[in-house]
């Protein structure tokens, strides 16, 4: 067997390892038993039905959707600023500043959570709310937005924008009518990725949620009660399906953006 074949088999095994937990999710979500273990007992949709009438879960989902939407908008706006600045002429301290803005990517999340908790509770004496989670999630998601938008902005030919300005558009007008449509796929992709990260984030949200839990914080509470676990499986199945749809759309827009800029796809969000 050639080296390439062996590597190929290994890569497929690796994918199976990556997907193993996710494949189990729908199996137990449709399993007609309270205990999450083999052997399976029979097909049932009752765990999904149990989700429907759950008001506490509904509230948590509502909170999470609001937080994720606001985070997506804010981090994408900040990402546009940073990516645009990064694509423009050098200014003093450029690489240092851009590096600092990307720092949350390599910082342990607990450090972000702890430092914001200290400032909000002990220094400012503020009440924790959805907005405190949004503030933290925006910090966390901005580097991802910048990474995605960097691709969109750096591939832009500056002469297109200069051309628009030569033809009488103002700087802002040229940005809106020429640059924005070209980077729009990157913006959509950034919105979706930030939304997905925020919707799923637990470590920071657990420190910073007020009296209204986000969905992951609510799930964390459920994990302690064995009889609730099949419901968690059902919820997880829906979430995974939703994430895959969102990511597929994000990937579609990212590729379209690359195609618009006339570039070869080098793969990956990061």
């Amino acid at each position: 067997m050639s080296g390439g074949r062996i590597l190929g088999i290994y890569a497929v095994l690796y994918l199976i390892f990556l997907y193993a937990p996710i494949v189990l999710l729908p199996i137990f979500a449709f399993n007609d038993a309270t205990i999450i273990a083999f052997p399976l007992s029979g097909f049932s949709t009752r765990w999904f039905e149990a989700l429907w009438g759950n008001a506490a879960l509904g509230d948590a989902v509502g909170n999470s959707l609001f937080i994720a939407a606001m985070t997506a908008i804010l981090s994408t706006l900040l990402g546009i600023c940073a990516a645009r600045a990064g694509a423009m002429a050098d200014f003093p301290g450029k690489s240092g500043i851009l590096g600092f803005v990307m720092l949350p990517l390599v910082l342990p999340e607990i450090i972000i959570a702890v430092s914001l908790l200290i400032v909000l509770r002990q220094v400012l004496d503020m009440q924790l709310s959805n907005w405190t989670v949004i503030a933290a999630h925006t910090l966390l998601c901005t580097p991802f937005s910048i990474a995605i938008l960097n691709g969109a902005f750096q591939n832009l030919d500056p002469s297109i924008e200069e051309g628009a300005m030569d033809l009488g558009e103002s700087r802002w007008g040229a940005f809106c009518s020429v640059v924005l449509p070209l980077v729009m796929p990157g913006i959509v992709s950034s919105l979706l990725i930030a939304f997905t990260i925020s919707l799923d984030e637990f470590i920071i949200a657990f420190f910073l949620t007020g009296s209204n839990p986000t969905m992951p914080v609510y799930i964390w509470g459920l994990l302690r009660f064995p009889q609730q676990l099949p419901v968690v499986m059902a919820l997880g199945t829906i979430l995974v399906a939703l994430s895959i749809v969102l990511l597929a759309i994000a990937e579609f827009y990212r590729r379209r953006g690359l195609a618009r800029a006339g570039l070869k796809d080098s793969g990956g969000f990061l």
Partner: peptide, 29 residues
């Protein structure tokens, strides 16, 4: 080359799906 981004996409998908539930599923495994 045409299939590379598909592979990368496949590898990133599990990472974006509910972290808490993924950890819990390892308990099931």
């Amino acid at each position: 080359p045409a299939k590379k981004s598909m592979w990368i996409f496949l590898i990133t998908i599990p990472f974006w799906t509910s972290y808490l539930i993924r950890v819990f599923l390892w308990k099931v495994i």
